[in-house]
Amino acid sequence: MGVFSIFPPRASTTAVQVDALYTFLLIVAGIMTALIFFCVFFFAVRYRRKNQDDPAPKAIHGSLPLEIAWSVFPFLIMLVMFAWGAKLYFQNYTPPLHDTFDIYVTGKQWMWKVQYPTGQREINEMHVPTGRPVKLILASEDVIHSFYIPAFRLKHDVVPGSYQTYWFEATEPGRYHILCAEYCGTNHSDMGGWVTVMKPNDFERWLAGDTGGSMREQGEKLFQQYGCVTCHVTDREGRCPSLLNVFGNPVVLDDGRTVVADEAYVRESILNPNAKVVKGYKHDIMPVFQGQISEEGLLQLIVYVKSLSPPAPRSGKSAAPAPKANPK
């Protein structure tokens, strides 16, 4: 890709799809622009005033068929753009349910902290394999950031107080920009890094490198350190729900609603336990951890909670190993 290519490198399945859609729009916009420019130039020259004393030309007040035509036809073409764009958008922001490799990203002024379930931690660097869906779980410790990888044609804002996710499947090994796309203060333009796309074998080798304990192990340590273990696993009085087989499954709440226990639900239940209380349990039993645990720690706890649910039937390569004691 030279300096004057209009396309950045394409390194994901999405990049190819977005570029195809972009090319379609470029062609439509190009034809429309050419049509209007031609008419303006042609009319301006063909009907120029040759003599100041020429009589005013005859008025043409309009044409209903023309008005209808140039409203309806463009709109039909726009409907194609809309449907095509919406389909891709849903696809990119809806991760597959199984077999994703999950990476946990925390943005803070002005760096990206990246954690892997296996325990590797990096700053402003991310390693991903080709040919495998990778799901990003994005958190922010302070202001809004946006995790943008132009070579994948993907970004999503990283919003404090919530988890945002998107997924991709990388295709071309190489190093590509990670950029922060939402203005976040002084060093916003330096809040970038590199994503390294590797062949699956290289990635497995990289992943096997030394770590200070997997994310699950670190999460388990925090689980004990904050005393979660006393109620959520061994509580004999039944004050708190067991966390076995909770993650990824529906939970019935005391107000009758049913929610799926995803990352956002677990996060909320740690920080603000009274927000969604499981049916049959009391409010105000568990302390509020808002402001007590770092975003990275939260992600480690979530990986641990995930590990308490057995792998889904198809997820042979699930990132977090399931405890052997809990076969379904």
């Binding site: 859609l21 972009y22 095509w84 990119n92 970004k155």
Partner: peptide, 19 residues
């Protein structure tokens, strides 16, 4: 106006918004 259509198209906006 025509480049506005690019931004209204969801999947393209994901790539070019904030650029």
């Amino acid at each position: 106006g025509l480049t506005g259509l690019f931004l209204a198209t969801l999947a393209i906006d994901v790539h070019v918004t904030d650029t």
